[in-house]
């Protein structure tokens, strides 16, 4: 039996290898084409160049789109994390009538096709005669990010020992100061995870943004427009590479701080952003 086990685990490891190749296939091609000295995206490769990165750096519409995306993603992260804190706190600490129903509605976007969110906001805007704007995209993104933030923060608040807050009040602090001095520092890793996740979801969200974009495009909407022009595609590969590297750096930093935080609080290391 030992032998059979060994053999089946060998198969599993081989499978994991193939799987990783499949998973990484696009990500591996990305830098290849980003540095490839040809405006056609196909093999064989034609030599090394950095011109596509130079093109990214010198492209005003792209910068504008990137700026818009940053505005949208930062606002979304802040807003949905704030809303998530309220919902998570209410759900983990209090019992009240219709709790399940209310939380259910908040969590619905997690299992709602994004196109429904896009369409429904569009319908309201058109019916009310408003104009499309970045604000609208932010509102839509907050809607789809809040369930994720609520889930992450719910776990953080759940892990918070209630008697710590009671001890603080017992020692003479007000509720507000207790929240600032005890609750916030202890759920900070959760808040950072929530900010980070909602930021990344928003930054990459296309389906809703495309429905609600007016004159100001976000980065994915801009990329969508460029995909139609073959000569622009190598530039997009360079942009994709930059995005990948920047988000990885960001994640590694965040993970570093999370671990440091976990260590000073003597928590068991586990989980990370997941």
């Amino acid at each position: 039996m030992m032998h059979r086990l060994r053999k089946s685990s060998n198969w599993l490891i081989a499978y994991v290898g193939v799987f990783l190749l499949f998973l990484y296939a696009p990500a591996l091609l990305l830098p290849l084409f980003a540095f490839n000295d040809s405006s056609v995206i196909s093999f064989p490769l034609a030599g090394f160049t950095t011109q596509w990165f130079a093109a990214v750096l010198d492209n005003d519409p792209l910068h504008r789109a990137a700026r818009n995306s940053l505005i949208v993603a930062l606002s979304t992260a802040a807003l949905s994390t704030t809303l998530g804190v309220f919902a998570a706190r209410a759900s983990t600490r209090y019992e009240f009538p219709a709790k399940r129903g209310m939380l259910g509605l908040v969590m619905v976007p997690m299992v709602l096709p994004e196109i429904i969110v896009g369409v429904s906001l569009l319908v309201v805007v058109v019916q009310l005669g408003l104009s499309l704007s970045l604000l609208l995209i932010i509102l839509g993104h907050v809607l789809i990010c809040t369930p994720f933030c609520t889930a992450i923060l719910g776990a953080a608040f759940q892990g918070l020992d209630r008697s710590l807050e009671e001890a603080s009040i017992d020692l003479g602090r007000t509720r507000f100061m207790t929240f600032v001095l005890i609750t916030m520092p202890l759920v900070l890793p959760g808040i950072i995870s929530s900010l980070l996740l909602s930021f990344t979801i928003s930054l990459d969200e296309f389906i809703i943004a495309f429905f609600l974009t007016g004159t100001e495009a976000t980065l994915p909407v801009y990329i969508w427009g460029q995909l139609r022009f073959p000569q622009r595609v190598p530039g997009l590969m360079a942009l994709g590479t930059i995005l990948l590297v920047v988000s990885l750096l960001l994640l590694v930093c965040a993970e570093y701080f999370r671990r440091r935080g976990a260590r000073t609080m003597g928590r068991q290391e586990q989980g990370g952003f997941f």
């Binding site: 704030t82 809303l83 998530g84 309220f86 919902a87 706190r89 209410a90 759900s91 600490r93 209090y94 019992e95 009240f96 009538p97 709790k99 209310m102 939380l103 509605l105 908040v106 619905v108 976007p109 969110v117 429904s120 906001l121 509102l139 839509g140 907050v142 809607l143 809040t146 609520t150």
Partner: peptide, 19 residues
């Protein structure tokens, strides 16, 4: 229950209005 309702209300009202 009142504290719970007050706390959930921003998020709930947001979902009500925008979803």
């Amino acid at each position: 229950a009142a504290s719970g309702l007050v706390l959930i209300s921003p998020t709930f009202i947001y979902a009500l209005l925008l979803l």
